[in-house]
Design a protein around this nucleic acid. Structure first.
Lengths: 334, 334
DNA sequence: TTGTACGCGTTATCAT
DNA sequence: ATGATAACGCGTACAA
């Protein structure tokens, strides 16, 4: 393994000079610089980052913990985050938590092993208790809705407002019996509950009584969406619109409605949430709520980098909520 | 920052003993172990991985370079790889190359910065020349089709056979004018060319003359698939089947056919390649070729870990080709 | 402008 | 069964 001192020897200078050339820290004569660069090239020297990290105390890597990259929403979030982080000089290591408390807690512990300079965690399960214990003294930004204390920097999205706008849109195109697939009213912390509140608010504002049979809690996967509408049909519950908690669910709902021979948007209008890229290509194309991914990712990175660099005083936490935008495509156009 | 020697001091032992307790290397008396464990707990000590890495010469991290996580195919590949790598005790850092030569070359250079113990790279553009220069003396496994020299371990899939089987399937359900969307006959290295060969072979075997107007080169994105069928229709080229080079393209093709009011599979049968998870939920559900992702990911990891651990002699390269399986869903069922 | 010496936290070796 | 010491490769005072 070629080290700095090998290069120094070959170039006839000291390691300090080599270090200075590499990092451009101090003035180095052109002649010396040339000699050093040549030696680096000739020997095929590469910096040992482990050594630099040990010395400097940081790694240039930020961790991203998501439930599952396989889900388009998280894949797209990760893609954006990796690209933006890179622009700021950071690399991204990804952990999959499997949406489990253990997975999330483990990601937090690992990052504190100083593998990462900071961690962005899309929380689903880790609650306040764990958060308080684990987040202490390590730069963490929570992305999502599970964290309610102000004990950590947090980037969220307009769950309530977005869902309300989506439901209002369904009402505007004439729906009167709108199902909420993936919704829940048990108060469990998380996006599902917040979005369901927005849905209920819109109904209330329109003077429509909510039918509890139209709120169908389910996992945020396509299979569940398809199953939900099948159940609705089997139970003979009439509905003319579906507000899905996520686009992934909505893809399943479209699928399920197709199986049932129910026309979209003619008989039932469908809207999703998240604006994943596939939403453009479903048949019919899916209307949805775009939650400002770019803004969210940038806000999260800004917050994290501030923490990592120690620019921000301890104890002062930030909160950012992404802008939301209604995207009308075919599935609600009539 | 709590270090080993802090723990050693608190427990009244030497750092070596602490290290032994943590790594379970040598025999340590139960009493000593208890004291050390207690001290670790009480002080909240965490291993410093940078130091361990410096000492041991490896990082426990493998790099994964993919064109773009946003593409479902790569997102799902990454999800699988992160999970499997973790089972083997490795973490995964992801780089996005943007499918550019620069991006791929850069990923290779970075990994040689000893940030990673090895690199799995889904090559699209880096050719033999670069490969030879960059791969030297660093554990790399190429995933994909661009590398043709035997200068590096390689995991590929049954592009030719898979495409041939898919096309044969279209022929069996009665198609006679089968378009190849994303196909290319210019011989450019890569999956597109190999799959097109399989497509042409199946046509030849069925005694059908290939119509060059039915081969439509395009990017591997949904937009391009939709555009391709629109062009076909606009040009008045008749077709009754579409063999898509990827499922992502196929989603666009389904979309494009829906726009044109063409029934699938009644008027035109459609098949994809890759078996991404969304293929189950398109309307109609997409028939496709499953390229044995799990086997490929495991093979790639096995190869890489062998290299990293130095189990395998230099210069002896391995090649693995994943199994393929035809998955028939609605888009070709008639 | 360049060089020397030491420390970052861990582990392997050798000794006790 | 446990401990002392020397690396691992780099960066930073401080000295020259």
């Amino acid at each position: 393994m070629v080290t700095m001192s090998d290069v120094a020897k070959a170039a006839g200078v000291s390691v300090m000079t080599v270090s200075n050339v590499i990092n451009g820290h101090r003035y180095v004569s052109d002649e010396t610089r040339r000699k050093v660069t040549e030696a680096i090239e000739r020997l095929g020297y590469r910096m040992n980052l482990a050594a630099r990290n040990l010395r400097s105390g940081n790694t240039g890597v930020i961790g991203l913990a998501v439930p599952d990259l396989d889900q388009p929403y998280y894949g797209q979030l990760a893609a954006l985050l990796v690209a933006e982080a890179r622009r700021r000089g950071y690399r991204v290591a990804i952990e999959q938590t499997g949406a489990s408390r253990e997975g999330e807690a483990e990601a937090l512990v690992h990052s504190r092993l100083r593998m990462y300079d900071g961690l962005i965690i899309a929380t689903v399960e880790v609650g306040d208790a764990e958060a308080g214990a684990l987040f202490a003294d390590f730069p963490v930004v929570a992305l999502g809705e599970r964290i309610s204390t102000a004990s950590v920097d947090h980037v969220g999205m307009a769950n309530y407002e977005g869902a309300r706008a989506a439901t209002r849109h369904l009402l505007e195109v004439g729906c009167r019996r709108i199902a909420s697939v993936g919704g829940r009213t048990d108060g469990a912390p998380g996006a599902a509950t917040l979005r369901t509140s927005g849905y209920l608010a819109a109904l209330r504002e329109a003077g429509i009584d909510a039918d509890e049979r139209l709120v169908l809690p389910c996992a945020f996967v396509s299979e569940a969406g398809a199953a939900a509408v099948r159940r609705l049909a089997a139970d003979g519950v009439p509905f003319d619109g579906v507000m899905c908690m996520t686009d992934t669910i909505a893809m399943g709902v479209l699928r399920g409605l197709a199986d049932l021979g129910i026309g979209v948007p003619a008989e039932v209008a469908v809207i999703g949430f998240d604006d994943i890229s596939q939403a453009t290509f479903t048949v019919p194309a899916l209307s949805t709520v775009a939650p400002g991914h770019v803004e969210m990712v940038n806000a999260a990175l800004d917050m994290l980098v501030e923490r990592v660099k120690g620019t921000r005083p301890e104890g002062v936490n930030r909160q950012f909520t992404g802008p939301h935008r209604l995207v009308v495509r075919e599935s609600t156009r009539r």
